[in-house]
Design a protein around this nucleic acid. Structure first.
Lengths: 150, 150
DNA sequence: TCCTTGAGTTCCTTGAGGGAACCCTAACAA
DNA sequence: TTGTTAGGGTTCCCTCAAGGAACTCAAGGA
């Protein structure tokens, strides 16, 4: 496929895609998040080729999203989310929200989230870190930042 | 590549990936969001192959994320975000937040957001739609929903 | 000693991405 | 009336990544 390298673009979307833009990566993170941490489990659950799973796991470990840990005297390893990886799951939660709203259909959402703070089944909402009010795509102006190319 | 079809998995992440999981799609949405709406503009800005751009745009239009609109008597078209597409940009904003925190480095974030409601440069925060408090990956229990496979 | 299990490698085939060249339509210009 | 230009794509070929199946390796256990 000889894919274009996104990592050098002056864009946080492109850079993030360079880390988890490969098709399987978000699903791997999801599985690890819900407690599926071993190679065989991931391979069986996702139906991913073992070769590609190896590549993806190495890539995620290289980028500090997952950590590879032995869990036995035998050469056995499990993959756990780092802080960096855990924060990526936030993105997955937003992704889930969109999928639930627009793609779930009659059957309803495949999973639900119970929020520890209030104990209720709830969904995520994007808010402004400054004022706390909703902050969506149409609620902002986009300005050039210090790291912009120009 | 003969990629695995995610669309039939009982998972909103997989279904969302089926719509915008291809490598270029998020970048196309980003560009359309900031006002780059024509084929030639997108092609030049992204450096994407014309063939692949055509495929991606058609895919996004087919899935109702973009709308293809004539803007001239001549056969000229522009692509604009639908409501469905605009809500996807929320996900991009979260992606940007993560990229800014973990990948931007010394140079700082390439773009900044000014929130209309408070007028300040700010970032997004994930909150609970029910109680309004922060709601991150570690703040929830994941439960099977009505649309789960089991 | 053989068997099993987890965690990968190796190898081959196929098909998607990259890239360049080409095509089509409608307005303009000469 | 015949170029010419510009936007928006097709077509073609080549390469390399995804799929898939088979193979390997190390450490226990029967």
């Amino acid at each position: 496929m000889q894919r274009t390298d996104f990592s050098k673009m002056a864009c946080s979307i492109a850079r993030t895609l360079d880390v988890i833009g490969e098709p399987w990566s978000p699903l791997i993170l999801r599985d690890v998040w819900v407690g599926m941490s071993r190679f065989e489990q991931l391979q069986a659950d996702l139906g991913i080729s073992r070769k590609v799973l190896t590549e993806r796991l190495n890539h995620l470990v290289d980028h500090g999203v997952l950590e590879r840990r032995p869990y036995d005297n035998r050469p056995r390893y499990e993959y756990v989310l780092t802080q960096k990886g855990t924060e990526l799951v936030d993105m997955l939660m937003v992704m889930v929200g969109w999928g639930d709203r627009w793609l779930a259909g009659e059957a309803g959402p495949p999973v639900l989230y119970r929020h520890h703070a209030c104990g209720e089944i709830s969904t995520t909402e994007l808010c402004c870190a400054n004022c706390g009010k909703p902050m969506h795509a149409n609620d902002v102006d986009v300005l050039a930042g210090p790291g912009s190319a120009a």
